[in-house]
Design a protein around this nucleic acid. Structure first.
Lengths: 325, 325
DNA sequence: CTGTTAGCGCCTTCAA
DNA sequence: TTGAAGGCGCTAACAG
């Protein structure tokens, strides 16, 4: 009897005991599908992540899953592996499962009609880490300009004037903002970035590797290189190691995004850290608020922006000769 | 009309077209719960992982999720974070969701009645990576003795005779088997492991760090150290780096389990690799076989054991002086 | 306080 | 070839 198990309605001690005993005896577990069909709520949250093998996203997923289960929701984890087609299918799946809400880290390449499909969602959704143009959803992101600026201020303070950036396409808002912040911070000190030091087409580790090799081989080698995300940092570090350069004596390096092994290797890598735990918490908090007040989107859209921070370790130091400009 | 959408039964062109059009128009998505209630199959697979932040498990999860979605199943990912209580709750969840099958990487500490609960499962389940005593389930594991032996053969061939092992408790089958394999391989060459060189109580990175420090500080320092999993490798590497030792000149190190950054750092770390992709594939294959032939457990139990392999990089070399014994 | 009932959306069966 | 009906397990509403 549902009243007994769910604690709704009034049931005598004795009956309750009998029901519970029988339930245990039979190994009874409530049928979630039937419940969902009847009640209209699935108590399932969708987690649609662009790439779960990215350690940064994994940290988010881990924290998100924890929070969700604490709140009594289960999570269907969908990994798009940066493939738009998989993302589309995964969205369809969550639609079918009648998820109560969704957290979306969108893929970089989008499919036709994505915005349209997202605006018509029958459940609340929130964007995490990456915002989408033309979609005024709740979102939790970091201040990417500030991330760039933090790195720039640190390098400038050390005396670096010839600095290089390894990044993906400036078409991507995140990369662009990080570069802008970096550039602007230097500019505020009267230092202007040499454009040929900005490697803009590093879309993956291999490309970052080649970009770093090019930078290292230049006669006017920069005194510091920054990689704008953890994938690119991997390629950069490999190139630096291959070249036999001594860090930070010959070259300072740093990255945006921390990685668990950045303080295991020597020299330990200086980074700009994203507050992943806080991002996950705020994100889940906000989503659950929407889910619980399921009376449509009466609440105003929230665009939560958190602040990254600088973590100085050993891979950055004063350049040997603070040459011209 | 279900016949039209599902392609069952016979429907005229024209009606079909009308139905499809209407479905698109309305943004119709079949209600998975209703379908599941009616058909008894949820097309959901449970993935109950001991610790998703372990990169090795993450690789498995990634491959499993891919395979499942290719086969038309969605995955509910449950992370136990090595907490037995969370594992118990997650199992309950999958029971409620009426999963069609489950892949289980069990936590190390188990809860009372776990074996009993697992034997009564109403759906097929398969163990991955870790087997459970007293449970004759299908399983996919690696030959852990062989993993130890591969490392031992490599170190012995290089001339190492005084080697140390950093491992968790020998109560855990995996750690014990790896040690056994390691010990036996050396023994076959007439070399017997010094027992005080076997650090057996390293349960986490911090403990491995201290264990490595102890080994390094000994006057009769070993010429090689092996860590039996990736967590422990982290602690070991940190201790070695802190001590300012030059690897592999002063000390050879290696690990069981590869990590994506083991070939980024210098020296690159020699390892024994587990065939994670193959493990995931065989695992999903076997489970789906069971799920599809849902006529109970008529198929014989399969215990699939895959072979690890040796990946020699730069962290192991001949010891400087091949001293006595 | 306790037992009964209707109906959630789907699919299978049967009738037209 | 098409329409109608029943029932999967649950919960909310209502009757005893």
């Amino acid at each position: 009897m549902s009243k007994a198990l769910n604690g709704t309605g009034f049931v005598s001690e004795e009956l309750l005991a009998r029901v519970v005993a029988a339930a245990n005896q039979l190994g009874y577990a409530p049928h979630a599908s039937a419940r969902s069909l009847r009640s209209g709520a699935s108590r399932i949250l969708g987690l649609l992540v662009a790439d779960i093998t990215n350690p940064f996203f994994l940290t988010l997923v881990d924290a998100l899953e924890k929070r969700a289960s604490e709140a009594g929701y289960s999570v269907i984890l969908c990994n798009s592996a940066e493939d738009p087609e998989r993302e589309r299918r995964n969205l369809q799946l969550l639609l079918s499962q009648r998820a109560d809400g969704m957290i979306l880290v969108p893929t970089r390449d989008s499919w036709a009609g994505r915005i349209a499909a997202l605006t018509r969602l029958p459940f609340p959704a929130i964007l995490l880490d990456r915002r989408l143009d033309g979609l005024d959803f709740d979102s939790v992101t970091i201040d990417n300009r500030m991330a760039g600026a933090l790195a720039a201020e640190h390098l400038h303070a050390l005396g670096h004037r010839k600095v290089a950036v390894i990044m993906g396409s400036p078409e991507m808002a995140i990369a662009r903002h990080r570069l802008d912040g970096f550039r602007e911070a230097f500019a505020r000190h009267g230092v202007f970035l040499e454009e040929s030091f900005v490697e803009k087409m590093a879309f993956d580790e291999a490309a970052a590797f080649r970009a770093a090799q090019r930078l290292i081989a230049r006669p006017d080698r920069p005194s510091a290189i920054i990689a704008t995300n953890n994938h690119l940092a991997l390629g950069m570090l490999r190139a630096v190691a291959d070249a036999g350069l001594s860090v930070p004596r010959d070259l300072s390096v740093m990255a945006i995004d921390d990685l668990p092994w950045f303080d295991v290797i020597r020299p330990r890598v200086s980074v700009v850290v994203q507050p992943s735990e806080a991002m996950a918490n705020r994100c889940m908090e906000t989503l659950l608020e929407r889910v619980r007040s399921a009376n449509g989107r009466v609440l105003p859209v929230e665009q939560i922006v958190l602040e990254p921070s600088l973590l100085v370790r050993d891979s950055t130091a004063r350049p040997i000769s603070t040459g011209a400009t």
